[in-house]
């Protein structure tokens, strides 16, 4: 890959390694997301796909590898006990604020109303004006169909509603890249579609997105690129047509046949 495309990539990861308690979960995974790319990461459970996604915004700290966000190289140095210098920590926080993360289990702040959930990030992290943020937050909630419930607390919402609020919360930071970690896996089947619909709209408006998903049909429809992870390595990678219609690797063939 040319140096130019690396420095222009929205998100670039090279040769990431990560072990948990002696077990190597990631054995050197690389990925380049150009602007407007929608990349789906698929694979069976335990293949390391969530860990890989969480390494990108350093919720998990990779043991080795390189990460660049918009060409800016992340300083992954830390001492043996996991401590980081103030400078490094500040860079990480800044980078995280421009990578929007949506979790499998929503993780809305239960003691705040829907509106407060969406407003907290822009107000406290980006220190933007409260009134402006509220206008934007209401518009975002309207977009995901949750404006009517903006004064409710998360405990009173269904799973699909919570996930739509979580997406609005991530969007409120105006992120360069959206990361989705199995956004529909914790939902009842009849609630999956309302969330996928929102994600699909985001893909269509050209947002850069990386998502870990088990929704194969959806991945095939919206992705520009699909990555198949197997036992901590990328086993196959390419366009959705290529991967879903002509899977070359035996593991992927078996994985796909088990999905339908």
């Amino acid at each position: 890959m040319s140096t130019k495309s690396i420095s222009e990539a929205a998100l670039y990861a090279e040769d990431l390694h990560k072990s948990f308690g002696g077990i190597e979960v990631l054995k050197g995974v690389s990925l380049t997301a150009q602007k407007h790319d929608v990349i789906s990461i698929i694979g069976s459970s335990g293949s390391g796909k969530s860990t890989f996604l969480r390494c990108m915004n350093l919720l998990e700290f990779p043991d080795a590898g390189k990460i660049r966000v918009h060409g800016e190289k992340l300083d992954l140095s830390q001492n043996s006990r996991g401590g980081r210098s103030k400078h490094v920590q500040q860079q990480i926080e800044r980078i995280r604020s421009c990578l929007g993360m949506v979790f499998q289990s929503f993780n809305l702040w239960s003691h705040m109303s829907v509106l407060e959930n969406v407003m907290l990030g822009p107000c406290s992290v980006l220190k933007r004006n409260r009134d402006e943020v509220e206008v934007q937050a209401r518009a975002l909630l309207d977009r995901v169909g949750m404006l009517e419930k903006c004064h409710m607390y998360p405990d009173n919402l269904s799973g699909g509603q919570k996930q739509r609020v979580a997406i609005a919360r991530a969007l409120a930071m105006d992120p360069d890249v959206m990361l989705f970690d199995e956004p529909t896996s914790a939902l009842d089947p009849e609630l999956v579609n309302e969330v996928l619909l929102v994600i699909r709209e985001l893909a269509e408006e050209g947002r850069t997105m990386i998502m870990v998903t088990h929704e194969m049909r959806f991945a095939r429809d919206v992705s520009s690129q699909v990555v198949y992870l197997h036992q901590g390595r990328i086993e196959e990678q390419g366009s959705p047509e290529q991967l879903f219609n002509n899977p070359r690797s035996e593991h992927l063939q078996r994985f796909l046949s088990s999905q339908y």
Partner: peptide, 9 residues
């Protein structure tokens, strides 16, 4: 973790 992911110090 949701706070961490938003870049909160």
């Amino acid at each position: 973790e949701a706070g961490v992911a938003l870049g909160m110090p």
